[in-house]
Design a protein around this nucleic acid. Structure first.
Lengths: 229, 229
DNA sequence: GATTGTTGCATTGTATACAATAATACCAAA
DNA sequence: TTTGGTATTATTGTATACAATGCAACAATC
């Protein structure tokens, strides 16, 4: 994404280009297309029943989103995420999630707060039982809620992009009952700081939360997540 | 730009698409194309002597960069920057420039440090004489140097994008001798913190620097900068 | 045998033709 | 005059044809 893609939130679902864009994006994030795999315009076009033109336009956007790298006159390749990238993103995120949480204090709606509380309650249930799929969903939704609550299109979009970007790696590492419970407890603390309108505290807690998530990821073997493939 | 465009740094200067992209981008940032102006594929294509295809691809990228908004089946329009956008960007930047400065402590090279010191020395000369054009150049270069010195492609790219994005607004507001001198003094303090390898202090100073820049912008009438047009 | 040149193929880059859509102008009816 | 609809036109969306490029296999030369 480009940085401040505060516009085509609904990257036109109905144009062919939009459909290609969303489909390929999903397939990369879900792992269907592996790192360094070459994406051919014709092949993708045929698969989706469209010509090369919309595929090419979608590729140009995916490149700017950082999901593929286009080498002129050669081809489009799925980009890899290095260990450094992941570290950088987490450090960047930790600061911006702090900012986001502090802004959310002022702007969160009762409905959003309500959903946050539900989210945490439900997450506790699943965490205790080791339902990691559901935990991952709920974790994403919690952060998504906070991004919406900060009421800044700019920041919301930026954080959403980052969150999505590291999701490729995250699934492999967020899977112990202890961390799930701890993570959820941190969510609850952040939520309570927001609820009591304490921006400074919300800021600190959200910042710490991302740091903890990163530390946990490193402990659980970020590097191994790569070499195992 | 998308967020993590850590790839086509040289958005292929030699493909037609790359040329169109760069040209239109420049023209928007320089103000040749005004806010809400409609950009027509054929017109731009003829102006640059290319067909619609590369123009369309460039447009798709510019959209993701946030510089234009494409309304399906209708057209491409130069996006405006709202007062909220500017505020958000400055708040985001303040945190990330802090992070950048702290990382620069570890990774800056002697050459980069050398150029920073030159930059500050030269800026003092121009600031005292009210050479605002040169000041703007030097200011940009100082930040650019810091982005390079942090040794994180991710952060470097992100900050560069933001910096460029607000440049459209910045020129109008950074033009008093007092602020120029103060800004340069802040640069010097940041540089010295980096030089003495004090990440915490560099972080704080850089964060504060952006806050000050923002406050100054607001004082000098950010809103007026818009209504005057 | 290694290196270099050449040829053919696969793929991307660009231009253009045609289809779909939206804005505008115009005319007719009330 | 206003309103409604229709035709026209301008513009974007998509498909496809052709050009340029890169790559790999093979042949020729040393």
């Amino acid at each position: 994404m480009s940085v401040y893609d505060v516009k085509n939130e609904v990257t036109d679902k109905y144009s062919l280009r939009g459909r290609v864009f969303n489909k390929v994006r999903e397939d990369i994030l879900s792992g269907k297309y592996k790192e360094n795999e070459e994406l051919k315009e014709i092949a993708i076009g045929e698969e989706l029943g469209v010509s090369r033109t919309p595929v090419r336009e979608a590729f140009r956007q995916l490149e700017l989103e950082g999901l593929i790298k286009i080498i002129p006159n050669k081809g489009a390749y799925v980009t890899g995420i290095t260990v450094e990238d992941v570290k950088d993103i987490y450090m960047i995120r930790s600061r911006l999630e702090g900012l986001c949480a502090s802004w959310a204090c002022e702007h969160i709606t009762p409905e959003q707060l309500e959903e946050m509380e539900e989210n945490i309650y439900l997450a506790k249930f699943h965490a205790e039982r080791g339902h990691f799929e559901q935990m991952s969903e709920l974790d994403s939704r919690f952060h998504e809620l906070m991004y919406e609550a900060c009421d800044s299109k700019m920041l919301e979009h930026l954080l959403r992009d980052f969150h999505q970007y590291v999701q490729r790696v995250r699934r492999k590492t967020l899977s112990t009952i202890e961390r799930s419970l701890a993570s959820n407890a941190e969510h609850q603390a952040i939520m309570e700081a927001i609820k009591s309108n304490d921006p400074k505290r919300a800021d600190e807690l959200a910042t710490l939360h991302i740091h903890n998530a990163y530390d946990n990821m490193v402990k659980n073997g970020l590097k191994e997540a790569y070499s195992n493939e």
